[in-house]
Every structure is written in structure tokens, then in C-alpha cells.
Design a protein around this nucleic acid. Structure first.
Length: 270
DNA sequence: ATCCAGGAGGCCC
DNA sequence: GGGCCTCATGGA
């Protein structure tokens, strides 16, 4: 029952589009639905109390995205990307869920990443308020064990998920403590997880801890940067909002790829 | 059928 | 530090 500005958002791996064009997904153990009217996002399935305590943070509503977009628009490519995809925001998801999600993302495609995450949640079967399943805790995953985890078909990533769950469940590593570190130390700490390198750790910092200055470099970013910013130091380029720039560049490049793959509907033209 | 996907780890130089 | 191989699986 709550309202807020902005049209679109990057909803990552746990949201699905409904027939009525709204988006629905589970976060913080609750199902929420986001739909848009004009330039305003309508969030349903949340209480006023939860809004202040949870969703304001989850949707990163206190950050001035308009101001950031203005700053980033001084770059020519970014201004184009922002014009094409206005209203992008970065969700601040639970660090544990983010860590597992991006361990799963390694050398994988997005439909299958979403499928594996969904089947993990179904497998643990923790009911979410409003329907669907909550994301399982480290302890739940440790309890499943290697064999119990097999049905989600995560492939070589399964052992990484289990290893991370064990280290967190036994107190060897604390994601809350990582959240207290400065960004370079947090990056190092996250890279200590097996199956987590700089790219995955950067995504966890950006999407799980709201560190807007980190710039995760995946294959798409590498591609778009080599195309438009040859011979530039990518780390230095976008400053304290590099992570937000990254999101614009990511959708910009994927959009370009989509146009190239299907410039017109001429398959039946023969 | 074949390529490849929001990488990482292990080796070898 | 860079180049190459493998990892498990299935989407397109």
C-alpha cells in the first residue's frame, strides 16, 4: 500500500513479470509486487511499518538517483544509456542471498541462474508471507548437504555454495562484519570464499552492501568498455558512482546486442 | 548441433 | 602478471 517515484528498476534474479506487466518477487521473506503508473512505482504487499524499516532501504529510496544521473550524463555514452533506460536503481538485497546468487551466476546464463535460485528456494520450502518461498539461510543449506543440494542442478557451483554456507554457519566469516569494513578490505574478505573472485565479490558489494563506487566487470562490461572507452582506465573513469554507471552500461550493451541479433523481423522475408 | 553464458581456480611459463 | 584448460549444465 505504498507509493514512490520512478518507473523501472533492476529487479535482478528473484522477480518475475506478471501478465498485467507488474513485477512480483520475494525479498526479506515477503512477496511484494511492483507496478508502474505514469512515472510512479506502486509497491504492494507491504505495510507502512515495513516500508520504513525494510523497503526504503531495499529500493535504495534515499539515494538521489536523479542527481547521480545528471552527474553521470556528462559522459556521452552514459547520457545516451541513461536516456534509453531512465529510472534504473540498484536494489540493496540481503548480502547472503546476493553472495549465493552471484556464485551461481559464474559462467551461466540469466534464465538458468534464476531457475537455480528459484529451485533452491523451493527445495528449502520456507514459506514467504504473501506466497512463494523465502531465501534459505546458511544453516538450511548446510543441513541439506552436498546430496541434498544436488536437485537444484547448480553444477560445479554447488560445492562453492555449500562451502560458503558452512563458513558462515560456523562463524568463521561474518557477512555483517564484512559490511563494517571499508570497501577494499570487504572485497578481499569476500574473495576468500571459494568460487568468489573479484567480479562476484564486486557484485556482492554493489548489490548486497550498496557500495555504489564498485564497478563489477563482466563480459558485457568488458565489451562495452572496449568498444567505447578504448585505452582508458575503467577503475578511474566513473568515480564514486561507478557501480550505478555500470548498471546503465550493462543494459545499454545488452540492448545493443539484442538489436544486432534481431534488427528487424526479417526472418520470414527470405 | 554447436556455441556460449553477469567466472573462478589451477597450472605453467 | 598473462595465456590456456577445466569445471556442470542447459538456454538459445
Amino acid at each position: 500500500m505504498t507509493r514512490r517515484r520512478y518507473s523501472t528498476a533492476d529487479r535482478r534474479f528473484r522477480f518475475e513479470r506478471a501478465p498485467d506487466n507488474s513485477w512480483s518477487g520475494v525479498a526479506h521473506g515477503r512477496r511484494i509486487t511492483v507496478s508502474s503508473r505514469k512515472n510512479t512505482a506502486i509497491i504492494t504487499g507491504v505495510t507502512e511499518k515495513d516500508f520504513g524499516e525494510l523497503w526504503q532501504r531495499y529500493f535504495d529510496l534515499s539515494r538521489d538517483y536523479d542527481g547521480i544521473a545528471d552527474i553521470l550524463s556528462s559522459d556521452r555514452i552514459l547520457s545516451e544509456a541513461i536516456a534509453l533506460h531512465p529510472g534504473i536503481r540498484i536494489l540493496r538485497q540481503d548480502p547472503w542471498e546476493t553472495l549465493v546468487s552471484f556464485i551461481i551466476s559464474a559462467c551461466n546464463n540469466i534464465p538458468r541462474i534464476k531457475k537455480i535460485i528459484a529451485s533452491l528456494c523451493e527445495l528449502c520450502a520456507l514459506p514467504a508471507i504473501g506466497g512463494g518461498f523465502a531465501f534459505p539461510s546458511p544453516e538450511h543449506i548446510v543441513h541439506l548437504g552436498e546430496d541434498g543440494l544436488a536437485p537444484i542442478r547448480a553444477g560445479f557451483r554447488a560445492k562453492y555454495i555449500l562451502s560458503a554456507a558452512k563458513r558462515i554457519a560456523n562463524g568463521e566469516v561474518s557477512l555483517a562484519e564484512i559490511g563494517e569494513m571499508d570497501t577494499p578490505d570487504a572485497l578481499t574478505a569476500l574473495c576468500s570464499f571459494d568460487g568468489v573472485g573479484v567480479k562476484v565479490a564486486s557484485c556482492v558489494l554493489l548489490f548486497g552492501y550498496g557500495r555504489a563506487e564498485v564497478f563489477p566487470v563482466d563480459v558485457w562490461i568488458k565489451r562495452v568498455m572496449e568498444k567505447h572507452y578504448p585505452e582508458r582506465d575503467w577503475r578511474e573513469l566513473f568515480g564514486e558512482y561507478a557501480g550505478i554507471a555500470q548498471q546503465y552500461l550493462y543494459v545499454y550493451e545488452k540492448d545493443a546486442a539484442k538489436r544486432f541479433a534481431c534488427p528487424t523481423d526479417d526472418k520470414k522475408a527470405i
